[in-house]
């Protein structure tokens, strides 16, 4: 087993003395991120809702980025991906990222097209 743990997060900005301490540190970080998400979700600041980037509200972009940040720390520190060999890391991480990005792109693109057909086509569905 990999007995040595890498004890620094945020690219060495924060160093912990022991693995247990690192776990609690990551928990605090994840809790803060979740709290930010919930507060934003309840209050929905106007400028984040009104402005959008690539056809999606800024608020939703923030949610997605924060989710990926959480996913990173869960995988890297709770699942100890940080301590695995880079070959294992790449095999496990890049495979889904590549496939899922492709799936999302193709499905959302298609869905937008279907939406346009429903809206502009001669098709009654709101009756």
């Amino acid at each position: 087993m990999a007995h040595e743990h890498k004890l620094e997060i945020f690219r060495g900005l924060l160093k912990f003395k022991s693995n247990t301490q690192k776990i609690w540190g990551v928990l605090i970080f994840l809790s803060i991120v979740t709290a930010i998400e919930v507060v934003l979700g309840i209050y929905k600041p106007a400028f984040l809702v009104e402005n959008s980037f690539l056809d999606m509200k800024l608020l939703n972009w923030i949610f997605i980025v924060l989710t990926l940040v959480k996913a990173y720390y869960i995988t890297w520190d709770f699942m100890h991906m940080r301590d695995e060999k880079s070959s294992l890391r790449r095999a496990v991480v890049w495979t889904p990222i590549f496939l899922v990005s492709y799936l999302i792109f193709i499905l959302l693109f298609e869905a937008t097209y279907v939406f346009d057909v429903f809206r502009d086509g001669f098709l009654a569905w709101d009756f």
Binding site: V92, P96, L103, L107, L108, V114
Partner: peptide, 30 residues
């Protein structure tokens, strides 16, 4: 290693569900 591979395949399954949810939602976005 096998647990990691299972996790990858299960992650793809869940991604399929969530992407299908995204599809339906974008289809009826309004």
């Amino acid at each position: 290693l096998m647990m990691w591979f299972f996790i990858v395949s299960d992650a793809l399954t869940f991604s399929g569900f969530l992407a299908a949810y995204g599809f339906s939602r974008f289809k009826f976005i309004e």
